[in-house]
């Protein structure tokens, strides 16, 4: 399947942390017969694909299946539903949005008091997440409880859309980009035997990656991710972090990991040799599953390659398709080099 179509299918599925079932089921349907797989007790999908040769080093490629979203916590007397964020969601991207009960067509809205009735101060105040409620159109708590019981997962109701010059907007690009790349590698002929993990619960603390890495016991790991790009007019210099269109992001350090220096250098060398654009981050910000994986057992030599992504953790993330393709190319080049180190 084409990478773009794969990404569209993956983004339009809902897989809030802890409820990745639909994403996992889809991925299994894609790899069935092409690779061997198991799932562990947390729901991680662990895949092994035979290559032409056995590698010198056992390599794991990992991406996470889950996405940020919301969970229903309480039913108000007026029929609206209180929510909590699952993963890091800025309340400012929730107000005035549509959400849906994950993997259904049942839509609710997150409204606000009318702007007309606010004081000047209130107009400029962002609503707090705990003040926001989802309105499904129910009129009583009981009705709401029947439609959306406590613990129901809610996803942003935005559809994958290609726009501009080669840009894509969707929810859950973090980290369906990584999943799409892994699937496309599993589809292809591999030079070396390779392990792949599609993990759960990254967004609530890198929880799936921890047990998945424990089970696989790799020597090397490549984490495939998306990372914050702030190449927008309201950010300057180093605060832009990285830019769309400038290729995969190779990290040296973020808030959860100091990356293996040799792999960092090898990644840039690979990019140069294969003439793939690449960049690094200009801020120590964010974190990803590498934080859990590189500390697994006696340690795993780990690198992260990320697709730069604007408006991360919002209903409308934006990437450049060229970056996704170039990330895949770099992953391919780098995996062969790591396996033969």
């Amino acid at each position: 399947m084409k990478l773009k179509q794969e990404l569209e299918t993956l983004c339009n599925l809902d897989g809030i942390s802890g409820y990745e079932d639909a994403v996992r089921a889809y991925i299994i349907s894609r790899i069935d017969g092409r690779a061997v797989y198991t799932t562990d007790n947390l729901g991680n999908l662990i895949v092994f694909k035979k290559g032409a040769k056995a590698p010198e080093n056992k390599l794991l490629l990992s991406a996470h299946m889950d996405e940020v979203g919301l969970i229903a916590t309480y039913h108000n007397a007026d029929g609206t539903v209180k929510i909590a964020a699952v993963g890091g969601v800025d309340a400012r991207v929730l107000a005035g949005r549509r959400v849906r009960i994950a993997n259904t067509q049942t839509v609710g809205v997150i409204g606000l008091r009318a702007v007309h009735n606010l004081t000047k101060e209130e107009k400029n105040k962002a609503p707090k997440a705990e003040e926001l409620c989802v309105d499904f159109g129910c009129e009583t708590a009981k009705e709401a409880e029947e439609l959306c019981p406590q613990g129901t997962f809610l996803a942003f109701d935005t559809a994958y859309t290609a726009f501009g010059n080669g840009k894509i907007t969707a929810k859950a690009l973090d980290d369906r980009c990584g999943c799409a790349i892994l699937l496309s590698l599993i589809d292809s002929e591999l030079e070396y035997d390779t392990w792949f993990t599609f993990v759960v619960q990254e967004e609530i603390g890198l929880r799936g990656a921890k047990t998945a890495a424990f089970g696989v016991e790799p020597e090397y790991c490549m984490v495939l991710e998306t990372t914050t790009a702030a190449d927008i007019p309201s950010a300057e210099d180093e605060k832009r972090v990285c830019a769309l269109g400038a290729g995969p992001v190779i990290s040296y350090m973020d808030r959860t990991t100091i990356y293996n220096k040799k792999l960092y250098e090898l990644a840039f060398a690979t990019a140069r040799e294969e003439e793939i654009p690449a960049q690094t981050k200009t801020m120590i910000a964010g974190g990803n599953d590498a934080g859990a994986i590189h500390l697994s057992k006696t340690g795993v030599k780990t690198i992260a390659l990320s697709v730069p992504c604007r408006y991360l953790h919002s209903p409308s993330c934006v990437i450049a398709y060229a970056d996704l393709k170039n990330t895949k190319r770099l992953v391919k080049g780098l995996m062969n080099r790591i396996c033969s180190l």
Binding site: D90, R92, K125, G164, S234, A235
Partner: peptide, 26 residues
Amino acid sequence: LSGVMTSTPPHLGGDSTKALELDEIF
């Protein structure tokens, strides 16, 4: 044309209790 209103990611600090001014959004 399709587009997306920019939003400032949390790592840029800033005051997340403040709504973004129309001035800061593109």
